[in-house]
Design a protein around this nucleic acid. Structure first.
Lengths: 217, 217
DNA sequence: CCTCTGACTACCCAAATGGGTGGTGACTTC
DNA sequence: GAAGTCACCACCCATTTGGGTAGTCAGAGG
């Protein structure tokens, strides 16, 4: 027994379906280098008993009786910031994936993940990775891409108009923008009118909203 | 030879370092179920010869002589939308990762990825996944998380104020917002003043910018 | 040469907004 | 029962804004 605690990855499970919960516990305990510190039926149960033997990695379902897994990890992550949390669930819709990641999950695996892969993913989480199932990775990246490249509808703004629009989004009014750009108040009004025409809006507020949404600034 | 073309994954490589390029080509050709349709030293070369035998998956370096891999995949993806493109590179900085994904890359692998893993990732890309190295996944998710949860500074807006603020970001003015919410113009002004106080701003434009930045709406 | 465009300035007037005051009623919490 | 919060409404007045018209000037390009 020279392999010490430092080498062994301690994992715990929150899952309400008995067969799955016991299957995971067995899988973890019967694999070299892993130890299951606990298996819980609900977030509430985990919260009271997690302190007995704090795991390195926590696998959690989302659809749980009582508090949902998403809410659960928010609380658990706040209490144990270093614990790596992996969602292990059947849900693969965007909202749940993003909510889970934002709540503090390090990874998001679908339940059909094969056992060997699952153990590999736990190791990956421990070494700072973010294990996600292929479908999930694909969704995250798709979302990210859409968010980051807004089809570049640039409305043909001239450089000056763009600069002015940027100032407007930063809270400048016409007078202060005029001072900032070193031109007269009337010039600002002139350019603003052009911006409105190009953006198809009629107020400063609409213009700044459009500028921010379409990432013109 | 009963295994037909439909089963074989056709891959191509863009990589300027000869050893790596030939290593990848050999790896792909000597693996069952894969065939290498071409290996190119630059994006320019790939563009002229890719049509000879169009691959399903393209592995590309980023640091290439002439056009960079990022610019390259933007062009290639536009010309061959169905082609899955994987970046295979030494760079792991955020900017390059995000630029590549936005330019149309399906995945982003670091060059230290072991051969077996690499082949698995090519298969994953073919089946609609988004293979990324663990470090890369971690960065994408971290970025995503920061972007999506802006520290929830909620300024204690009441439900009504939040509704009104949302309308303002949608281009409503006081009069139309009043009609929409079924209250009087003066009531809108009253609430708007409170919103301004809580958000510490003095104009509608500043309020909508703040609302959008802090994802209050 | 002439035209076009971008950038610039000015004046006028109407509409929208910002900020101050005053008040009502309902509902919760202490 | 008092204090607080939320929602509601009104009047006043100054400032900001939106939109129209009417110009100048410099540089690019046919």
């Amino acid at each position: 027994m020279e392999m010490t605690e430092t080498q062994v990855i301690k994992a715990a499970v929150i899952e309400d379906i008995r067969e799955i919960r016991e299957g995971l516990t067995t899988l973890i305990n019967f694999t070299d280098g892993f130890r299951c510190t606990g298996s819980y039926r609900s977030v509430e149960e985990a919260l009271t008993r997690l302190n007995d033997d704090v795991p390195d990695v926590l696998l959690s379902d989302i659809g749980l009786p009582g508090m949902s897994g998403i809410e659960g990890i928010r609380i658990i992550k706040a209490r144990f910031p270093l614990m790596q949390i992996l969602m292990l669930t059947v849900y693969d819709d965007d909202d749940r994936i993003f909510d889970a990641l934002c709540a503090g999950a390090s990874g998001y695996l679908l339940k059909r993940t094969p056992p060997a892969k699952l153990l590999e993913n736990i190791r990956e989480a421990m070494s700072g990775g973010a294990p996600v199932s292929p479908e999930v990775a694909s969704r995250v990246i798709k979302f990210f891409r859409e968010f980051h490249t807004p089809d570049r509808t640039d409305y043909d703004l001239t450089p000056h108009e763009t600069r002015l629009l940027k100032l407007l989004t930063e809270g400048y009014n016409y007078a202060t923008a005029a001072a900032k750009l070193g031109v007269s108040y009337n010039t600002i009004k002139f350019h603003v009118r052009h911006i409105f025409e190009k953006l198809q809006v009629h107020t400063k507020s609409e213009a700044v909203v459009k500028a921010m949404r379409d990432r013109l600034v």
